[in-house]
Structure formats: structure tokens, C-alpha cells
Amino acid sequence: MSNWGEVFKQTVKTLADAGFAEAEAEARVITAHAHGEDFSSLCLRFFDVCGKEAEIERLVAARLSGKPLAYVLREKYFYGRPFYVDERVLIPRYDTESVAQRALLLARENGYRTALDLCCGSGAIGVTLGAEGRFETVCFADISGGALDVARRNAGNLIPRQEVSFRQGDFLENIDGRYDLVVCNPPYISAEDYAGLEAQVREYEPQAALLAGNGGYAFYERAAREAPRVLEPGGALVLEIGDTQAEQVCSLLAGGGFISVESGRDLSGRPRWVFGIAPAK
């Protein structure tokens, strides 16, 4: 029987031989997942008998098929927390953490107490708001019932004491009342750009959560037009954007009556979010 160190080295080799650029990083995640602890803890057990070879081989085989690692493991970390993910939802990206961070800062500055995670997918943003902020309630909304099932599972696991609600419908359909904060990572990929995405994104992640009409701006146009209905006066709308969309989305929000419209970048320096404040009435 092999020890954990030997299994880890073999996993790195298998992935590297198959052409995976991040073979060692992915091998760390796979072996740590099978062990049930983080990789630092696993390193202390490298000379212990593994006993999980069959499970690791199964995970590696799934990865070699082209399936994204997060779907293979049914897990993706976001803002330091492990989220359950499957093919019903987009895989949370590190870039989106800057959107959640901006929303949390606005909430703290303005004393926001109610939040809506629109187009919630896995619920990564809404759960992060509930865990890191001081919200009385967080609502999760998505057109996909499957996505809401995933969001419900993550909210139950990660913010069990937070008051939450779930709404299924097309964008703001079925959203009652008003919120201090609306955060949305909508579909924003144009048909042209979608065709150029890497294969594992196009083949595995839900198209409806990525592809948007009007050159990628359809949901931003709807947000500028419809979001004021569900925002409290002085409330904020925070939108994730593609890195070429800041100027146009800012213009849409300003044209929709939002004030104090700003854009900002993620930690990689790429434009990543736009926000606007609903005017007082």
C-alpha cells in the first residue's frame, strides 16, 4: 500500500503528463480533499498509509475527462468558505470576491440591513454577505430552481442562523418589498465572446448563467430600468461586470436615475464591479 506522499507525487505526474498546467496545485486539492483536511495538515501525514487510492483515481479520471475540478470535488472555496457546487450553477470565481467586498463596504458605511443576491447561482455572494455583514435578512433569487436548491444548501450549511428567503423567477419577477442592497452577478458574456471561452466552461457550466443578449448588456439594461423598484431610497445596486463593460454599465445606471455611480477593479487590476445609489424620494 502506498503512503500519502507517494500518492500525491503520482497524482502530480498523472496530471502533468496529461498536460495540466497547474498539475501540482490541482494534485494538492485532490489529495487534501480525499484526506479530509487541508494540504498543510496532509503534509504531516505523508508517511502514513493512504488507503484512499481508489477514490483519488476516480477523482483524477474525472478531471482528465475535462470536467472542471470544482465539479469533480463538488466544492469551491469563496471568501474563505467551502461552497457546494455542481453543474446547475457557475463555479464561483476569485474575481467575484471583490464584488462581495465592495458590497460589504457599502453596507457598513450606510448601515444596510437587508440584502438581495440577484442571479444568485450557488449563493456565494449572498452567503458571504450573511456571514460577514450585519444583515437582518438576505434574499436569494434566481430563474433556475436547481440553482436555488444549491444556494439553499450553502446557506443552510454556512449561515444557519441568518434569516434567509428564496425567490424563483425571471430576474426581479416575484421579488416583493424593498432592499437596502441588491448585489447581482448577471450573465454578461456576448455570443461572440462565448464562442471563444475555454472548452471546459462551454461544455460544463450552465450557458444561461453566462450568455446575455444585446452584446452582453441585456441584464444591465434591465437592472438600470427595474432595480429601483426593489431598492430603498439611498440603497445600493452592485453589479459584477466584464472587464470591458465599466463605461457602458455606468452610463446605463446614470441614465436609469442612479446617483454616485462608480466602478472599480478586482485584485488583478481588471474592471470588475459597478455600483449606483438609488436617489432619495
Rank of each mutant, 00 (worst) to 15 (best):
N3K: 08
G5V: 00
V7L: 15
T11Q: 00
L15P: 04
D17F: 04
E24Q: 13
A25F: 08
E26L: 06
A27F: 02
T31M: 05
A34G: 08
D38A: 04
F39K: 12
V49F: 02
V49G: 11
V49H: 09
E53H: 01
E55L: 15
L59S: 02
R63K: 15
L64W: 13
L64A: 03
S65F: 01
G66T: 13
G66W: 07
P68A: 12
P68F: 01
K76Q: 14
Y79E: 13
D86V: 02
E87D: 10
E87K: 09
R88P: 08
R93E: 02
Y94E: 14
E97Q: 07
E97G: 04
Q101I: 00
A115P: 00
L116E: 11
D117A: 06
D117M: 05
G121L: 06
G123V: 13
G126L: 05
V127D: 07
T137L: 04
C139D: 12
C139A: 15
F140N: 15
D142A: 07
G145K: 06
A147D: 14
D149P: 01
N157K: 15
F171T: 03
L172V: 15
N174M: 07
R178V: 12
D180P: 00
N185H: 09
P186I: 05
S190Y: 03
S190W: 00
E192W: 01
D193G: 02
Y194Q: 14
Y194I: 00
E198C: 10
A199D: 10
Q207E: 14
L210V: 04
L211I: 10
A212V: 10
G213S: 12
G213H: 03
G213A: 07
N214Q: 15
R225D: 11
R225N: 01
R225V: 10
A227L: 12
A227K: 02
E232I: 07
A236L: 10
V238M: 04
L239Y: 06
I241M: 13
G242L: 04
A246H: 05
A246W: 00
E247P: 03
E247T: 11
V249Q: 11
S251K: 12
G255K: 13
G256E: 11
S260R: 09
S263R: 10
S263A: 12
D266E: 06
L267R: 08
F275N: 09
I277A: 03
A278F: 11
A280S: 13
